[in-house]
Design a protein around this nucleic acid. Structure first.
Lengths: 333, 333
DNA sequence: CTGAAAGCGCTTACAG
DNA sequence: CTGAAAGCGCTTACAG
């Protein structure tokens, strides 16, 4: 049967409350008593019941995660699983737990989140993506429930978030290309309602401006989705219009599609850069240069910010910026 | 403040126990009372506290998942995230929750599992991989805690599991190749301590035997890991020895490596088949034929078997076999 | 059909 | 420094 705090108390000849204090390592308890209790716990191989603890403490030490599920990117891009790993690494250190659920759409996500919160399962929520007018964020703010966002949210003040500096990341990629002599640089982004797309587009534009290159709006394309076929399609549209010397994209899958379109539709050499440095970037022909966004670290720091808040540890900043790194390969040589 | 069952009881002018029975939809309660209580619940927007419920019920309706983390495959192969999605889809239907943790090694996995169990967080465990002498399985059997395995375990009786028919899957791939005229068919498997590797190897051997083709042990290679470089290396070793007309592998990444070795090291046309039908199989040169193992369905049925057991619904069989399908592309044409 | 009471396994003011 | 008691928010025999 289940060994409880009472059994330990009986064996150690103390009160249950004393055992509880020993578990919490209360400084008020004498060392002698602690020893007695530790021994009894060991003899009975006692393990505290986390549920009972949660009820008494009004805290589960559990974080809730909601994953998109229609998003094709979920399976093609290791971002989510890497971020989940980073979260897990931090929570394990801090004895926190993680719950996750997949959602089909934003409304579904909101319901899952409400359920997590109202049923008292989770102490905090980690949002893995941020979009414009994010209903989840609005709700979490409204009910004032602790959360953190991976990706910079719209009203970043009073909100915990982690992100890459997407503006800077794309700025330096484009800057790098310009230094190599490129002037006709095109941009193929994912759907524009993602903040991440906007930030990277801004970085692209800024780099061109800084070098006095006129921005040609026709060279800025939107892939309908973070997928290979959408990348192919966008590149196809672009080639029908104009042949650039370089293309920056906001996603490896989009870049894979662009590479294929280039191979099939033109003889010109066009440099291509992806984002996320997915494992297969290295195995494209040519191997694809790509920006590593360090998804595991994004997850790790997201968990850290949130746990700090839950434990009332002051966060020096309400966000972390995780560094990016261009991994240069054949596609830009 | 938190709305409790007492507040609802007071407003509806009934006892808390009555409210509890209404929530559980007990047939003993009159419709009139039910109505009153429903109204009160709505007026107060009452949500049951899952933690309190769990404590009283001695059941959390939560399943625990342990993910490998060193495994390179974790990021390269969408298997895990797909299986996790399938699990989530089923648990959502049944109002169950999921917890996950990443582990670094088997010992770590065992500790995480023990913690899940002893702290009473989870009602059941889903193991995403099964290896020889699996310590987690041994432990779960020892303490008689409900669990299900994705992948056929060693002593399958009295154990819930889901899997593809890996023997059959590989058998029919090899059979298919033989029918196309191949007789020199090589096998490159992942590490041999995985049951899945053994089953597929058996299927390979059986198909050859059935057609009277002598098995040449030198044509059976082991990639040290489920990775592209290990596939490359194995193929390289093979080519140094003998040039087959076809190669079957147990993993797309291994197959990607094999394709690259073939391109670089020989002019011969060699057919290649992968496993898992990862999204990028389609974008290899040539596009890779691969066996789709339906990971989402594996997860879905794993959750189903386990939840049935927890709810005392009899499982007709202690396992599910999820169908596989060869997706044929250029690499075998 | 419904209520009062005890219990799930903890924690934590309050006393001493 | 330690204990007795009340409480966290539910459920469920037991009575009626």
């Amino acid at each position: 049967m289940q060994v409880t705090i009472k059994d330990v108390a009986k064996l150690a000849k103390v009160a249950p409350s004393t055992v509880s204090r020993v578990i919490a390592d209360s400084p008020k308890i004498s060392d002698a008593t602690k020893e007695k209790v530790y021994k009894a716990m060991k003899d009975l191989s006692y393990q505290p019941n986390a549920i009972a603890r949660s009820l008494a403490n009004k805290s589960t030490k559990t974080l809730g995660l909601i994953l998109p599920s229609t998003d094709e990117n979920l399976f093609n891009n290791p971002f989510f699983i890497q971020a989940m790993k980073g979260i897990s690494v931090y929570t394990q250190k801090k004895d926190y737990y993680i719950m996750y659920t997949h959602s089909n759409n934003e409304e579904n996500a909101l319901n899952i989140m409400k359920n997590y919160i109202h049923s008292k399962w989770v102490d905090g929520i980690i949002l893995l993506t941020a979009s414009e007018n994010d209903k989840c964020i609005d709700y979490l703010k409204e009910v004032n429930h602790p959360f953190v966002v991976i990706g910079r949210p719209e009203n970043a003040q009073n909100t915990l978030w982690v992100d890459n500096d997407n503006f800077q990341a794309m700025y330096s990629v484009v800057n790098h290309l310009i230094k190599k002599g490129h002037t006709d640089i095109s941009f193929i982004g994912g759907p524009h309602h993602f903040n991440v797309t906007k930030d990277r587009l801004d970085g692209y534009k800024r780099a061109l401006e800084m070098h006095g290159i006129v921005i040609d709006e026709r060279m800025i394309l939107e892939a309908k989705d973070f997928s290979e076929p959408c990348g192919y399609e966008a590149m196809q549209d672009l080639l029908a219009l104009k042949i650039p010397t370089a293309v920056v994209t906001t996603d490896d899958l989009i870049a894979f599609g662009a590479l294929r379109a280039i191979k099939e539709l033109t003889d010109k050499k066009i440099s291509v850069v992806g984002f996320n440095n997915t494992p297969l970037a290295d195995y494209q022909t040519p191997p694809l240069s790509s920006v590593d966004i360090n998804a595991e670290k994004l997850g790790y720091y997201a968990a850290k910010l949130l746990v700090n808040k839950l434990e009332n540890v002051e966060n020096i900043l309400n966000h972390y910026i995780v560094e990016t790194k261009l991994i240069e390969r054949e596609s830009t040589k």
